[in-house]
Design a protein around this nucleic acid. Sequence first.
DNA 1: CTGTTAGCGCTTTCAA
DNA 2: TTGAAAGCGCTAACAG
Lengths: 376, 376
Amino acid sequence: MKGRHGGMTTERERVSSPPTISEVAAAAGVGRSTAARTLGGYGYVSPELRERVLAAAEQIGYRTNALARSMSTGVTHTLGVIVADIGNPFFAGVVRGISDTSRERGFDTIVLSTHEDLGEEIAAMNVLIDKRVDGVIVASAAVQRADVAHINAAIEHGIPVVLVDREVSHLDLDAVVIDNRAAAREAVDSLIQAGHTRIGFVWGPSTDTRPTTRRDLLDAAAKNLWTDGERLRGYLDALDDAGIRFDPELVMVGDKTESRAVDEVARMLALPDRPTAVFCSETDAMTGTLRAVRAAGLAYPADISLIGFDDSSWAAVMDPPLTMIEQPMHELGEQAAATLLTLVDGGSTPRSLHTLDTRLMERASVAPPSGDMPLS
Amino acid sequence: MKGRHGGMTTERERVSSPPTISEVAAAAGVGRSTAARTLGGYGYVSPELRERVLAAAEQIGYRTNALARSMSTGVTHTLGVIVADIGNPFFAGVVRGISDTSRERGFDTIVLSTHEDLGEEIAAMNVLIDKRVDGVIVASAAVQRADVAHINAAIEHGIPVVLVDREVSHLDLDAVVIDNRAAAREAVDSLIQAGHTRIGFVWGPSTDTRPTTRRDLLDAAAKNLWTDGERLRGYLDALDDAGIRFDPELVMVGDKTESRAVDEVARMLALPDRPTAVFCSETDAMTGTLRAVRAAGLAYPADISLIGFDDSSWAAVMDPPLTMIEQPMHELGEQAAATLLTLVDGGSTPRSLHTLDTRLMERASVAPPSGDMPLS
DNA sequence: CTGTTAGCGCTTTCAA
DNA sequence: TTGAAAGCGCTAACAG
């Protein structure tokens, strides 16, 4: 089946098969179990033999076969992570947090990107089940109640699951998230406090046709990502609090891309009663907005106020620096991993929802609306 | 050792052990091998039995145990990836590229962050060897010849390795990189073409004491990351070409952090013959420089020209937009994965060095030096 | 075409 | 304390 190992290779040549415990045992002149015990770090072994085994192992370059170990122990010391896009700085930060804290506790992580596609998410979950990871953390794209079969499948296979960044309704699982709704509300409220009443929302639900009623809007949002819906709700909350009437013309619709944001903001700026402020719910929404604002010959915060989601070092060096909502990416990951690990350790924590704090980094992109606005 | 499975669970309860092939066979009323053959997709099986098995598997929620499969086949269909920091947008992009292309070919990836620490890199490699990944891609922090034992260890264990982003001298491996030296040279040259002769370099080698000679500088750089050294060389190349004398005062030394960059640039700007342009070799070097420039009451490009490494959507919306060097992160990952996969497939490509193109995104942060500079 | 029989390299009783 | 033997769930030869 597989070739036999031929001892230490000095040359760069590929060896057919890595050394096994039996070979170490042979080299050390002891029984397999003795070698196994010292190498596996369990059971009793006399100091002398122990030394001999260790030396032999070192000598022939032995490394434990984690697969074989997992086969008999039933644990892999590996956590699975499913996110939309590992290339996205936000998820990269979260994954870093997960990776750091699990590594610290002896767990490795295998991360899968789903490109925000439910089909890929399901496939990813299957991969993780097949690989028998000890637990999984998922930022799920599932929104419908019917979309969660794969998550339940993992649980049925005895694999604990914790959600990160996104809650999934009607799924009774631990989750580590931020309060998107409150964060958005706080941001929009600060705009209102500054005197704004015409506030744009970028980006909104990805419908083709512009929802005209609040209800349509919310329905459309319900088909989209949980986070986006929450942020939209926060926006609406702030408006309601201040008794500002909601204007459907002021929320972006369509694909959630930077270029679409440029177009939509341009459209809003051309309105007779244009927005004097805009709230951006994503990084690319902000860069798109910035482009549109500049293209319209407007300057912030003089002509228009701006607040965005997801702080970055760039936002702080813009001129003027941007007021942004900071998300604790790393901590989201840390907490998710910590929660999962207690589950893995058999600790049956009562199902919990960890809501981490965001911070509104107030800088200089917000100012009162200029008085010389054309009034409708 | 492990409990037995008790059939399909309707409730959310944890099941002791997932269903196995034998259980499927029993449920379908066929022999284990028949079940194994249909489920494993190898060998011949009559349509009728095939159906029965599939149905039974579906019914009891069977999922292949990839560990067991790997044990007998000797392959894991998993690639290992070692980078300094998965939270860094650059590496996140590279990892995304790796992940996308390996996924496409049926391979999963397990990625480990080393925090730029060689010890962690070695540990990471051991984890990957233990887990018997089929290949590994590494952006190594190794600089000394003695630092590569772990890489050779992997190869001795029959695991092919390809380098990404960073070459390691005296290591005869496939590598996928960009030409850092040429990219830096091109950037600095464009500054020179614009008329600059006093050009700062941020960031340089992390020494405590400022190297005074070119030789000291290069020696210091040789102890640092390969990429950084190359970029410094490119800077020097451009200076040489133009016959501009190298001034040690114009290169940053010390920790490679944003705040250190701020300090060093501030220092340079206070020089009697201050730089009229600066080249930043990293994202944070650029944001730090921006802060220092602004703090000094200077504006770019009027008072000082700027070029940086690692383009981002933010750089394009700065005002004025920044001229930056764009690295093909995703493609670096793609190519590294593709190269590794051919190695994994046994294709013994002659050792190759893939050098991908960078692009100087010329925007508006470069202008001729202002005439009213205080001449020394 | 189907079932039986060995392993893969480890861990884990159980005797010696 | 040490060694022998069984088993984890699968694949892969081998008969039938």
